[in-house]
């Protein structure tokens, strides 16, 4: 039996308190801060430059790109590439499908993952190890494309947008991560609620989840990004091209399909005149179009990394 804390209260710190507590911590010396900022600026630049390059390409004419492939600012400005994107109905529709799948899919992912992770955080239930094995094995052994296709066909999911939502409903990796975070919630908090008569579901809903916002945001981000970036499911399990998500369409634009059969040793048979390689600026603009929306989701989620988190310090 866990003893009830003397105060009988658990306290959840709000962000203001966290910050105020942090600020009371020892400050870094000025040179320490300088080094930190310099390193971060360096790392930021290393990743910012490729981004600027893609952005600049998307705003340049494609002739200018072959003359200045390493540009960081646009040469001979043009919005042609974006005009192409917004005037291509398939791109707009597939964008809508991707947004739908990402939102609905992530919600379902979180529902399934959270419940299972919470259940599996109770290591004392009989069969715990068996259940963990059940989760880990699929991470190591993929079943292969053809049997999966046959299964989905029998379930009537081939050619349905729902296959994008359901295939990959629970990721073992995310499940284990979330389970581990649940472990880090002090037991006392849950126990005190149980003593107050809360059921497992109530504890999960009212105590554990509010304490797990950073994890939910993180795992939700992992799932959301996985849905967003997923071209595999759409390509292989959806035959009707009008139901394809953005990534499938995007891939056909940015990948040079002429690479096919060009490897050493065998003569390619592809009819080279048929190959259509999209202009460089369209390829770049497609990349921007398909990454910026999800990129913007992150700063929005970041607030959950500080707010409302922590941790009931059990006063004693």
């Amino acid at each position: 039996m866990v003893t009830k804390p003397e105060t009988g209260e658990t306290e959840i710190l709000r962000s203001s308190q966290v910050t105020s507590q942090r600020s009371r911590l020892e400050r870094n010396p000025w040179w320490g801060d300088t080094i930190i900022y310099l390193v971060l600026v360096f790392l930021g630049l290393v990743t910012l430059l490729p981004m600027l390059n893609v952005l600049a390409r998307s705003l340049s004419s494609s002739a200018a790109i072959s003359a200045n492939p390493l540009m960081l600012v646009p040469y001979s400005w043009t919005l042609d590439a974006y005009q192409y994107i917004f005037e291509t109905p398939v791109l707009m529709r597939s964008f809508g499908i991707t947004v739908f799948v990402t939102v609905v899919g992530t919600a379902l992912n979180l529902l399934f993952t959270t419940t299972a992770a919470y259940g599996l955080s109770k290591t004392y239930i009989p069969g715990y190890r068996f259940l963990m094995w059940l989760v880990i094995i699929p991470m190591l052994f993929g079943a292969g494309l053809i049997p999966t296709y046959l299964l989905l066909k029998n379930l009537g999911l081939i050619n349905s947008v729902w296959v994008l939502v359901i295939y990959g409903l629970v990721s073992p990796f995310n499940l284990i991560l979330m389970r581990n975070f649940f472990w880090s919630i002090p037991n006392e908090i849950e126990e005190s609620a149980r003593i107050d008569g809360a059921s497992d579901l109530q504890v999960l809903w009212h105590i554990v989840l509010p304490l797990s916002k950073p994890v939910l945001a993180t795992i939700g981000l992992f799932y959301g990004v996985a849905h967003w970036n997923d071209f595999f499911t759409g390509l292989f399990f959806i035959t009707d091209s009008s139901k394809w998500p953005l990534q499938v369409v995007m891939r056909s634009i940015i990948i040079d399909q002429s690479m096919l059969g060009m490897g050493g040793g065998t003569a390619p048979t592809a009819d080279l005149q048929k190959l259509v390689i999209s202009a460089d600026n369209i390829r770049a603009a497609t990349i921007i179009f398909s990454t910026v929306p999800i990129l913007l989701a992150y700063p929005f989620l970041q607030r959950y990394f500080v707010k409302g988190i922590i941790l009931g310090a059990v006063k004693g």
């Binding site: 053809i146 296709y149 046959l150 399909q257 096919l260």
Partner: peptide, 17 residues
Amino acid sequence: IIPVIDYDTKVNTILAS
């Protein structure tokens, strides 16, 4: 349609189905 780069892989699943 299937983009040519993925055609052979996908078509095999279709044949198998």
